[in-house]
């Protein structure tokens, strides 16, 4: 069968409707679909032709990721080079990695990153889930919407503002938290400078900022659960707790699993903006994370190659963790990121 025949069979006589006679003949001759017609390229072309408005809408996103997320990957080769602003960079192999790993400060920074990230996942990650479940139980729609509006607000504040709020609120001299401790007979404490408390400040300021906003995803997942399940449960006499336990929670497990895996992938992103703004010299050794280290040493110190090596290390570890979590989740639950 010729190429022309394929086209005529696919498009049909009027250009839209396949000609059933020709189709039958092709099937009978066992030559359709032909290799040429069924190539991925052809399918892609047909797909684009049919869905081009959607591809057009997708294009800005694809271009953004290509330019700002994939293209820079190539420039990570700077980690293996000495930077030159005049002339080509000089290949130095693993020199910068050796320098990085020889620094005791780097392991302290790595440990801080792991501890802070683990604390956030353990204490902050469940909060939006709990909040979404609680909001779902609120009967008054007006009250629920009001609460949602209020708890979303901190998400829109920058860390500069939030740091100012927390530093003022936790001030040992006149901060509201210490005033409250004073009222109940507890001693005033300098939470911002005590090595034992500063990581908790990071955890709870993160929770304050993001719990409301992050609950949106879970709340949306709850909304997509079939109402018939609840009706059936009610007919069977299920209590509200039982409906939450046996319908709502299982209904949002895929969302929880996906977000957990993505969070694990971002495990080493312990929050540059937050740490940068809440840090001070008294507790820097407790909350100095890879990102702040890279910024201080690389960007402000001009050690771009060393900073790129640290960044690449972080990226590789993050990717490994995410893939590990994905495959583990696939094995245990049958669900992963893809």
């Amino acid at each position: 069968m010729t190429k022309l025949d394929h086209k005529s069979s696919a498009a049909g006589g009027n250009g839209n409707v396949p000609n059933p006679d020709l189709l039958t003949a092709e099937i009978a001759s066992d030559q359709w679909p032909g290799d040429e017609f069924d190539t991925p390229g052809a399918r892609f072309r047909d797909g684009v032709r049919e869905w081009w408005p959607y591809y057009l809408m997708l294009a800005p996103g694809l271009i953004y990721f290509a330019l700002f997320h994939y293209l820079p990957v190539w420039e990570a080769k700077l980690a293996f080079e000495d930077l030159r602003i005049i002339g080509p960079n000089v290949w130095v192999g693993l020199k910068h990695f050796a320098q990085l790993f020889a620094s005791p400060a780097f392991f302290e920074v790595l440990m801080n990153t792991l501890i802070i990230s683990a604390m956030k996942i353990a204490f902050v990650f469940p909060l939006p889930i709990i909040l979404a479940l609680l909001l779902n139980e609120v009967r008054s729609g007006r009250f629920r919407r009001g609460v949602q509006s209020v708890i979303y607000l901190p998400h829109f504040l920058s860390w500069v503002v939030i740091a100012g709020i927390f530093i003022a609120a936790l001030s040992p001299a006149d901060g509201v938290i210490n005033d409250m401790r004073d009222m109940i007979g507890l001693e005033r404490r300098s939470f911002m400078t005590e090595s034992g408390s500063i990581r908790w400040v990071l955890v709870w300021s993160e929770a304050w900022r993001s719990t409301g906003w992050d609950s949106l995803l879970y709340f949306a997942a709850i909304m997509s659960i079939d109402p018939a399940l609840y009706e059936a449960a009610e007919m069977d006499g299920a209590s509200r707790w039982q409906k939450m336990r046996y319908i709502t929670l299982p209904g949002i497990v895929p969302t929880i699993a996906t977000l957990f895996i993505l969070n694990v992938g971002l495990f080493l992103n312990a929050g540059f903006d937050q740490v940068f703004n809440l840090s001070n010299d008294a507790i820097r050794d407790k909350i100095d994370i890879i990102d702040t280290y890279v910024y201080r040493l690389g960007i402000t110190g001009g050690q771009f190659s060393l900073a790129t090596a640290a960044g690449l290390f972080k990226g590789v570890v993050g990717m490994t963790l995410m893939l590990g979590a994905h495959f583990l989740s696939k094995r245990l639950t049958g669900r992963g990121v893809w």
Binding site: L100, A102, S103, A105, D285, K286
Partner: peptide, 15 residues
């Protein structure tokens, strides 16, 4: 080559 060492010692001193 000593940038990381200087940074580490200074951070240690400050805290």
């Amino acid at each position: 080559d000593l940038a990381a060492a200087v940074d580490g010692a200074e951070t240690y001193y400050r805290t």
